[in-house]
Write a protein that binds this DNA or RNA. Sequence first.
DNA 1: CTCGTGCTGACAACTCCGTGACACCACGAA
DNA 2: TTCGTGGTGTCACGGAGTTGTCAGCACGAG
Lengths: 226, 226
Amino acid sequence: MSRILVIEDDVAILRGLKDNLDRESYEVLTAEDGEEGYRLARAANPDLILLDLMLPTLSGYEICRMLRDEGNSVLILMLTARGEEADRVLGLDLGADDYVTKPFSIRELKARIRALLRRTDPPPAPPDTLSFGDVVVDFLQYETLKGGNRVEMTPKEFGVLRYLASRSGEVVSRYELLEKVWGYGKFPTTRTVDNHLAALRAKLEDNPAEPRYLQTVHRVGYKFVP
Amino acid sequence: MSRILVIEDDVAILRGLKDNLDRESYEVLTAEDGEEGYRLARAANPDLILLDLMLPTLSGYEICRMLRDEGNSVLILMLTARGEEADRVLGLDLGADDYVTKPFSIRELKARIRALLRRTDPPPAPPDTLSFGDVVVDFLQYETLKGGNRVEMTPKEFGVLRYLASRSGEVVSRYELLEKVWGYGKFPTTRTVDNHLAALRAKLEDNPAEPRYLQTVHRVGYKFVP
DNA sequence: CTCGTGCTGACAACTCCGTGACACCACGAA
DNA sequence: TTCGTGGTGTCACGGAGTTGTCAGCACGAG
């Protein structure tokens, strides 16, 4: 069975989680502060980490970033306070795999843990750079060149393009784009997606009226065709 | 499509919810009081329940508890008034899966419903690609090639073909196609199915008048013969 | 303050879908 | 066999839903 590391400073919650996960016959390790959790994360090689965001000595945010910087791709499920940093946690910059907001239902948590552990083929890693036609995009520097000239793009435009590129060739629905690029808890209209696609086309396509790379699939969504 | 049970005593809200969810092609059941809701929850086997917390005869709180005590793991999305024990709803003791506080935006509600339903395991995935004769169909890219040439197909056509292919060799009734491809709650004429089959034949068969792959079974339905 | 970014609503243009009409075909009865 | 009935193939029309586009507003950063 899988090994789960729980890093949580509230002892009551920690015990509740451990009991519940024990009962599911996971192997459960626990830590009550950030430094201890970080040490265990590296030493015990868990399959998944339940990581509280607010911790003594070392925040969950820092632990997550440190692990990722080391190239550690362990599954991380964040426990966050509602509304607090939920959005940033899900941003493209922090490498958590999922999150739940407190207070959470234990059922939901267990379902998410199962879902994470079950997924054997990880999602396609978003590319750091992208080239097509005479366009070169650097997602790390947030810089875009078209025909050698600099093109200004907004963060959202980078996000949309990056997600479409990570699904290269597949049709992606507007709802999926909203969830993946905008993030949980944000609910703009699907028309917003259209607007950003229009902006991308205007900036990157040779003939925006006849898109070659950012194509519409009527009633379904958009796809990036390299 | 998914079956949703809405238990809500405010008839205006109930109607609004039903209309909106109908439009998303969910199958919607409704109940205006707790007892009726509870009865439906057990009898109709919904995929998700929209559950108002304050109800006549039986509160949402009690319904949730009763269902969980019976081992029923149906998804439950609570509708609560602001500040109305929202935390306990998601607490470890009561097994709701998510909640929204009134007044809520219909868009947020729909997004949460989608998120919850997506989390459950979908039925065995139909194939992503399909080949027969000189035809190659890619259901992810929504692209079809016949003899190396691109063929334009509409989403409905992809849907019909995909479902027939997932039942490869079996005869599928028009009624079943309507249910699975169009979704519950949508009941166009069976002539509509014929039209889409005709379109598929025109686009994919070598001789549409003598279909080789998309065959009619008189008085029964259609079958895909690979 | 001003500017940039993102979101929404409105409008027009367009695609797709559903329906009805009619001709034709399959099957069973005589 | 022939006929009749009901199912099916096909077409074109009109409505409904989607998308491209633009203008305007809200919000936060500088």
